[in-house]
């Protein structure tokens, strides 16, 4: 079968290698007019935004926790992680509930995105490696780029995003901005 997706391979093997002949399905979502794709097998459900309970003294990209049928699930603002300007959450704001693998075990996490777009199937050969970007702090969470309907889709490796860590903290962004400003001077 052509359309089977091997979970082990998708999660553990190096994505860049071309040996994978299988095709994979991606769910895409929009953020600041860009389209991002994530492995559909990691998506547990898609929900509308509802007010989360904020946690004290956590990095700003952690928007709080919600009740997902009895378990407490943290919500992460992906815009914040990517250093994109924040927007006000509306009824259209979407939360994608994902299963991510961390070194401490599996975690269920909701990511807040602008809108959910599409589902499409890609063969491994259609994915091209992400180009070296000049001043990105960390881009290893970008699994590759693909063209779908003549539009570029950025494929993300959600495990490498380290959504729950302190890394995409506001402070790092501040310093980055500061440095940029300095450089321009």
């Amino acid at each position: 079968m052509v359309n089977t997706v091997n979970i082990d391979q998708t999660s553990d093997d190096a994505y860049g290698e071309n040996k994978l002949q299988d095709t994979m399905q991606f769910l895409t979502f929009l953020m600041a007019q860009e389209e991002y794709g994530i492995d559909i097998l990691r998506v547990q459900e898609i929900r509308g935004w509802e007010t989360a309970t904020t946690l004290p003294n956590v990095p700003a990209h952690i928007k709080g926790v919600v009740n997902l049928r009895g378990t407490i699930v943290p919500l992460v603002d992906l815009r914040h992680c990517f250093g994109l300007p924040e927007v006000k959450y509306s009824a259209e704001t979407v939360v994608i509930v994902l299963l991510i693998k961390t070194d401490k075990g599996d975690r269920v996490v909701g990511i807040v995105v602008d809108a959910v777009s599409d589902v499409f199937t890609l063969a491994e050969s259609e994915v091209c490696a992400a180009p070296e970007l000049a001043d990105s702090v960390e881009i290893n969470f970008i699994r590759g780029l693909a063209t779908v309907n003549e539009k570029m889709v950025i494929l993300l490796d959600i495990d490498k995003l380290r959504l729950l860590d302190e890394i995409p903290d506001q402070m790092a962004c501040d310093i980055k901005n500061q440095l940029n400003a300095q450089r321009q001077e």
């Binding site: 007010t51 407490i72 729950l164």
Partner: peptide, 27 residues
């Protein structure tokens, strides 16, 4: 009592969380 650590991590000042009657989470 529901653990925050199941899906996130321990947060200082908060021992755990719970779910109130209206379905929202309280710390």
């Amino acid at each position: 009592v529901k653990s925050l650590e199941t899906n996130y991590r321990a947060v200082d000042g908060v021992s755990s969380a719970t779910i109130l009657g209206d379905g929202t989470v309280a710390l």
